[in-house]
């Protein structure tokens, strides 16, 4: 499994250095430095309102849609500063995909949902190739067998868990390097959650994966690296197994043992 990273020069796919995020005057994130690599799934945990989702959104500049939001510090993708003027935000978001808390399939057919990204980015040269991308993306998201006979049905007609896997397939279809997942299972039932977690396992190594979750068991199950956020700062970052058995910081220990959160 660890041999899958051969085509990546550095093992650090994304790095952040001293990132601050402000909403107007209010500071939401304070000096976060973190490295994301290809081999491991990274989990961001912390009590709600701690800024983990905010931070995640800065990593593909989705926070650009909020006018009052300002980011300082450095975030790089393959060594390129993603906030540099030379970085094109449209391309960045194609390379750094995102899956949201609530499944948000477009009110289009399943096929068109998956084909949306490849179409706008011009990744397929013809109908056959597009068909292939759609099929492979759905296969990789573990949804192909369930939907292959009804690709023309609306994506919104699927169950919640299927919708979320559709959204993952949609993100995969543009061949991203990083996939950011913002509490992808919080709107799903336990069985659907288990399927998504299984999927994350399978995707590991092919994409750098960052998952925000408020569910510590989930972090323990799917991730190899965990970052604990509290009040806009990153308190601790390390191996998941280490973090959950032997946290270095008092606050982390309190959170993991359920004192607050």
């Amino acid at each position: 499994m660890n041999t899958e990273t051969t085509n990546i020069a550095s093992s650090n796919k994304m790095t952040t250095r001293n990132v601050d995020v402000f909403y107007g005057e209010k500071q939401a994130i304070n000096g976060v430095s973190i490295d994301i690599d290809m081999e491991n799934v990274t989990a961001f945990i912390g009590p709600s309102g701690c800024g983990k989702s905010t931070f995640l959104r800065t990593m593909n500049r989705m926070n650009d849609t909020i006018p009052s939001c300002r980011v300082t510090g450095e975030i790089t993708l393959d060594g390129e500063d993603i906030y540099a003027p030379s970085m094109d935000v449209v391309q960045l978001r194609a390379r750094v995909g995102m899956v949201f808390q609530k499944p948000n399939p477009f009110p289009k057919s399943i096929y068109d949902n998956i084909a949306y990204g490849p179409r706008i980015h011009g990744l397929a040269s013809g109908k056959d190739e597009l068909d292939q991308i759609v099929e492979k993306s759905l296969q990789r998201a573990g949804l192909w067998n369930e939907v292959k006979d009804r690709l023309n049905e609306s994506g919104t007609a699927l169950s919640g868990g299927q919708q979320q896997r559709l959204c993952i397939a949609r993100a995969i279809a543009v061949d991203p390097e990083v996939i950011l997942m913002d509490e992808p299972c919080s709107a799903l039932d336990p069985i659907a959650t288990a399927k998504i977690e299984e999927l994350i396992h399978e995707l590991r190594g092919k994409y750098a994966i960052v998952i925000v979750t408020h569910n510590m068991q989930q972090a323990a199950r799917v991730s190899q690296r965990t970052a604990f956020f509290h009040l806009g700062t990153m308190v601790e970052y390390g191996d998941t197994s280490e973090m959950f058995t032997n946290p270095q910081e008092e606050r982390t220990r309190d959170y993991i043992t359920g004192r607050y959160g």
Binding site: V90, N104, G117, A171
Partner: peptide
Amino acid sequence: PSSMRDGSLAMGATKSETIKKV
């Protein structure tokens, strides 16, 4: 829902593509 818009933008669509296609 704004999640539609976010979903499209997060795919790397431009604003006008998001408006026209989603």
